[in-house]
Design a protein around this nucleic acid. Structure first.
Length: 628
RNA sequence: GGACUCGUGGCUCAGCCUGGAUAGAGCAAGCGGCUUCGAACCGCUAGGUCGAGGGUUCAAAUCCCUUCGAGCCCUCCA
């Protein structure tokens, strides 16, 4: 507990005052004050205005007088503001000590929302027939950041990546390899996922448009693919796993890791569908249509204005959404687990074990990846389908909010960037399309950013060794990209512009990382080991106290972010920390001071800032180099 | 036609859930700051009918209704 302490103290005192006045059920706020209005403010007087039939100003004055009789340890003085707000000024000597001491603990910023319960976060889930593009990155970074935040909020998080290794998009590349004889080895060392996406997939799709008779070949290939024993299925498995390996490299490079890979082909072959199909029928959640436009189909009835959704076609095959139902039920632990688990054949950079589903029990280890609560990160275009699943799961297990669809808006290309890809958009932004080959690949953006940052770093540190520059460029480029993907609200479209993405100034990760590097240099040059055994009363400058205050807000921000699955909250917090530090840096000289006591206090603060920022950035999957 | 989302300075956004004080940032523009703990920084100036209209309220960018504009979804595609 940190800044929360003073909020709690004030809230309790105000409650007591209300009790004495025999007033209850007033949901007043006690929150961080706007700059210039003290440290904490409450709207309590506004809420009492009606009941007491007085204007807020009078009430605030009355509360102000009563508050002076309350016992307070962290509040130095109170103010009845003419506007009606009741403002509080903190005793910063005491509060600084509490906040800065707490910040040195490993658990700083942790909150308990999850009560150590299991939760699943599923993200990425990109069709394994192409390389990841910048739109997928948003999904991955949102998912990874949310899982880090939930871990900090005391959930046991398992991260899943759903591998959709059956279906038309996979059939298409098989047609490319088998029918159009694309070489199985990519030319001149091209990454396999890029080769499949850029060449095989795009060009095969183009040929469909020229020759409609290819539709038959496509359909047959799909059929063979879904028959687990066929040669086509084995070939498809081999190809999709090679693509997946390439995709995982991209993800790992972004500091993202997983706990388990779930293969759609295995879910299909596991027989989970027929089990859930029977249950759906029993529970009356799906109905058979005898006539009408969906005659001979099984459907889910639509709510209100929504149309019915076909689950099983009149020819007896299941539709796309039907594959999601058993998977969702499996995640929630509503079905017996048909899978065995094997270790994936490559280690993740953070050395966490990565499991994968398997249907044969050779060298298998039992695992449990189910949870009472499931968060699925999918873009909001799938909202309707996800809503059907959500509703269905609610009826299944009667636990509200156990299946959460975390939606986000798509990433589009700016008209300039689209133009560089050969697409004229008439000044409008453009949707990406893997099929048409209109996209910016994740790897190329990372590479571009890394080059730019390498240049910038060399400019600033001509003497620096290449290996260190490489490390810095890696950290800053990944930080930049990740930050851009989460700093704004999930329901805002991100228009990606190649040129603008290279900006390293302002509200960007490099700005934040730079503050960390500055602080690191102060600590390094001071020659003092930071300690919290210092005189906190010496920290009196506005910029010092503002920095302490911002540090003290960490756990409040984590709570907000975890409750709302809102990664941007932490992004903004990191930015706020950096702004507060830069202001401190300009106003206060740490090392110049003749006063050793003061120097120690400031070193304590600088170190507190650094460890807090490091922890907050870690929630974003961003590292901070000591020099840059 | 129906569902959902967005609309805040030239541009990109925060604030909206949970109504209250002076609507905050960044980019771009103009000016200023490195013999000083690192200028990937800081300060100043200019720029805003919070899409429009109505309602609720002592109080609306925030809640409700209507409307306009943009996006997206509404296949026995995946």
């Amino acid at each position: 507990m940190t800044f929360q302490l003073i909020l709690d103290e004030i809230k309790n005192n105000l409650k007591k005052i209300l009790d004495d006045l025999s007033i209850s059920d007033v949901n007043f706020s006690v929150e961080l004050a706007k700059p210039g209005f003290g440290d904490v403010s409450s709207n309590i007087a506004f809420l009492l205005a009606k009941e007491l039939k007085k204007n807020p100003k009078e009430i605030t004055q009355m509360l102000f007088e009563k508050y002076s009789q309350c016992s307070s340890t962290l509040v130095l003085k109170t103010e009845a503001h003419p506007s009606g707000y009741l403002n509080f000024f903190a005793d910063w000597t005491k509060l600084s000590k509490l906040i800065l001491s707490e910040s040195y603990l490993d658990t700083f910023g942790a909150v308990d929302i999850g009560n150590n319960s299991n939760i699943i976060v599923e993200h990425t889930s990109v069709n394994p027939n192409k390389a990841l593009h910048i739109g997928h990155i948003r999904n991955i970074v949102v998912g990874d950041t949310v899982s880090r935040i939930l871990t900090k909020a005391n959930y046991k998080v398992n991260v899943l990546n759903y591998i959709d290794d059956s279906g038309l998009q996979v059939a298409d590349i098989i047609v490319g390899f088998k029918h159009f004889k694309f070489d199985e080895e990519p030319p001149n060392g091209k990454k396999f996922d890029h080769y499949c996406g850029d060449d095989v997939y795009v060009k095969t799709t183009q040929k469909y448009e020229l020759d409609s008779s290819l539709g038959e070949i496509r359909k047959n290939t799909l059929k063979e693919l879904e028959d687990g024993d066929s040669e086509t299925a084995a070939f498809g498995d081999m190809i999709t796993r090679k693509v997946l390996a390439g995709q995982l490299q991209t993800c790992w490079n972004l500091n993202v890791s997983y706990d388990c890979l779930n293969f759609e082909s295995q879910i299909i072959r596991s027989g989970l569908w027929s089990k859930i199909f029977e249950k759906l029928k029993e529970m009356g959640l799906i109905e058979f249509e005898n006539d009408g436009k969906n005659a001979q189909c099984w459907v889910i009835r639509g709510d209100d204005n929504e149309d019915d959704k076909v689950i099983v076609r009149s020819n007896g095959t299941a539709t796309y959404i039907a594959k999601d139902i058993p998977y969702a039920a499996w995640k929630l632990g509503l079905l017996d687990d048909p899978f065995y688990y094997q270790k994936y054949g490559a280690t993740q950079p953070n050395s966490k074990t990565l499991w994968q589903t398997s249907l044969n029990n050779d060298s298998a280890t039992p695992q449990n990846f189910t949870a009472q609560k499931v968060v699925t990160v999918i873009d909001s275009r799938q909202e309707r389908l996800q809503k059907i699943i959500t509703t269905l799961m609610e009826k299944f297990n009667s636990i509200p909010d156990s299946y959460v669809h975390l939606g986000y808006e798509s990433v589009t290309l700016s008209s300039d960037t689209a133009k560089t890809l050969g697409l004229e958009t008439d000044g409008k932004q453009a949707q990406m399309s893997g099929r048409k080959g209109v996209y910016v690949s994740a790897d190329s953006v990372c590479e571009l950013l890394k080059q730019k940052i390498t240049e910038e770093t060399k400019k600033r540190h001509p003497e620096m060794e290449d290996s260190e520059i490489e490390k810095i460029a890696q950290s800053v480029s990944i930080g930049s990209l990740r930050y851009e993907m989460i700093k704004q609200d999930l329901d805002k479209i991100i228009t990606f512009d190649l040129a603008k993405s290279l900006s390293l100034e302002g509200d960007t990760a490099p700005y934040i990382q730079y503050a960390y590097a500055r602080a690191s240099r102060i600590l390094e040059k001071s020659g003092i080991t930071p300690t919290t055994d210092v005189d906190f009363s010496l920290l009196q400058e506005k910029s010092e106290l503002n920095l302490v205050k911002t540090i003290g807000l960490f756990n409040l921000q984590v709570r907000d972010a975890a409750n709302n699955f809102a990664p941007k909250v932490i992004a903004r917090y990191c930015h706020d920390l950096a702004v507060a530090f830069n202001s401190f840096y300009e106003h206060v000289k740490v090392l110049d001071s003749d006063n050793d006591e003061l120097k120690s206090s400031r070193i304590c603060l600088v170190n507190s800032f650094n460890i807090t920022l490091e922890k907050a950035l870690d929630l974003l999957g961003i590292s901070a180099p000591n020099r840059m």
